[in-house]
Design a binder for these strands. Sequence first.
DNA 1: GCCAACGTTGGC
DNA 2: GCCAACGTTGGC
Length: 153
Amino acid sequence: MNYWLMKSEPAVYSIADLERDKVTGWDGVRNYQARNIIRDQMRVGDLALFYHSNAAPPGVAGLMRVVREAYPDATAWDPASDHYDVRSTPDKPVWLQVDLEYVCAFRTFVALPAIKNDPDLGGIMVARRGARLSVQPVSPAHFSHICRLGGCQ
DNA sequence: GCCAACGTTGGC
DNA sequence: GCCAACGTTGGC
């Protein structure tokens, strides 16, 4: 079982939207490093922290689970989509997505400044080098600590 | 809105 | 393949 942190701007799609939808296709990833993680490493049953980026403050808002492994992201060949990419076609898809299901919304939002100041979360990627990557690995120890801070399982 | 970090593009 | 220019992310 692997653990991840996945970013979304809450103004676009938030943990409350996922709670309503129950399952969502995590489309729109347009970074090769993030795509390769989705393609090569994300497996059904993996858990992911739902991170609110571009928020005030940013931070972890809840928990979700992978329920479908990598498959083509159809928004890439939709000219009407904000994520349209002329290089990707149904025959040769460039961009991939997974499906994620809602697990819980944190009772306590775990804000980025608290993450940075927590000695138990030293070295976590979201606070350091590679912070911009929209799909990141999280160590089991860091993952369980953030879940405990958030008040979710 | 600013800007640092960093990924991508394209000329050579 | 180098690297300067440019675009994007995302914290602040």
